[in-house]
Design a protein around this nucleic acid. Structure first.
Lengths: 228, 228
DNA sequence: ATCAGTTTATGATATATATCACTTCATCGT
DNA sequence: ACGATGAAGTGATATATATCATAAACTGAT
């Protein structure tokens, strides 16, 4: 799992580590570990102690909570450099949600202790982290509001566009999640997710090949997302 | 509006400013302004430029977004020292939501520029802010998930308990919001909010006197909140 | 004190979504 | 190659929630 330290070239550095000197970057190397995950692997388990500051270098993950009745609620899908650690890392001792790879993924893990030490010694870095964390949680909250204000069809359209515009940037893509997971994300039943997809297919808005989706009428999808 | 600087005694200092020296506190004083708001006053208007770091010293506020169709979605109700500024202050130039006093409120406003300067020079302070911000946005996200997994009755029970347990700490209190605002918070219609309240009253779970609520059967309310 | 507008309230009905039952299809482990 | 398990798909029906209509109570402004 351990890899030679190459933080100098890390994309994350470009994003917000530009305030950290190479000397400081090097000091992080000691505790830095890269990990690989297969689709379906847990990266973070709800309830476990937080020891590391984790971020996603490549792949795709889902953040979710498991309720007392065993049902799962998906908070968001995150792509690289959207913090996997989200916010709780700085305010809690245990994770209040789980993170699972929904595609082959690689994370970079740094001792949370090391990060906190650096934060205390480097205000610019702290501000950078604050900005990044702010963006990420703002996005989660915004997404939640967006979904909440839509009906079934609007939510499905929104999700399809989310994968299209924010993740894959192409009209043809493989859904990285099951219909059930889409249901857990938008807060509706699996059956109704399937029905909505079928409707879109029958209306010629999308084509469906198992998990693969092809968006045929993008404008129509946007319209459904915006006005039901 | 301006008041003599008394940050030394500020409750906020107790919460997370304990890492800031009195000299540094004093340096914030120059740009510090206290403002008073009546119920219904805007504290922050969606779309306006962010110039200040604002926190609530006393009172009660609602955070909400106004959709293109003019409808409002309430993100959360915040009590003192739950940041009014939430997170966007560090990641955006304009507010993506509004904040309105739903009770007489007082805020303390500090130039965002000053706060950022202090963050850069004081890592411990930065970490404190990061912890606080994390808690607040985690809470907003958590609340949203809690509401989403409940049905109408569960949501209403949850809201009544929220005011009971987190805000007023008494079984008899005045709702600081209209039925319409509760609807905007839980994502249901005003009519159904009213109906659910009426049901609870008929079932002897609560008493209603206009905006005043008395919780008669706390355990039952908890049960409805947890199991519909 | 009055009018206008909003909030609370209730009922009838329409609509959206959930639930249940069942089938087919795909996937995984042995 | 096999059965077992879960995923996708569809229909019938039940249930929850929204919508529309209407009225009384309350609130603020003149």
């Amino acid at each position: 799992m351990n890899q030679e330290c190459s933080c100098d070239k890390c994309e994350l550095k470009e994003l917000f580590f530009h305030n950290v000197s190479s000397r400081e970057i090097m000091s992080l190397c000691g505790s830095r570990i890269e990990k690989n995950y297969e689709k379906g692997d847990y990266i973070i388990e709800q309830g476990k102690t937080i020891n590391e500051f984790i971020y996603l270098k490549s792949g795709l993950v889902k953040l979710f909570v498991t309720n007392t009745d065993g049902k799962e609620q998906i908070l968001s899908f995150a792509k690289p450099f959207d913090f996997v650690s989200l916010l709780s890392v700085f305010s809690q001792n245990t994770y209040s949600y789980s993170v699972m790879a929904i595609d082959e993924s690689t994370t970079c893990n740094i001792s949370i202790h090391e990060v906190k030490k650096l934060l205390q010694n480097n205000g610019a870095f702290a501000l950078g982290i604050l900005e990044k964390m702010s963006k990420v949680s703002d996005a989660v909250i915004h997404e939640s509001l967006q979904i909440r204000k839509r009906n079934l069809r609007g939510r499905i359209a929104y999700v399809l566009l989310h994968f299209r515009d924010d993740i894959y940037n192409t009209d043809y893509y493989e859904l990285p999640v099951s219909r059930k997971e889409i249901a857990e994300y938008i807060g509706m039943t699996t059956e109704n997710v399937i029905r909505a997809l079928t409707e879109f297919r029958k209306d010629g808005i999308i084509k469906i090949f198992g998990k693969a989706i092809e968006i045929i009428d993008y404008k129509k999808l946007v319209q459904i997302s915006e006005h039901g």
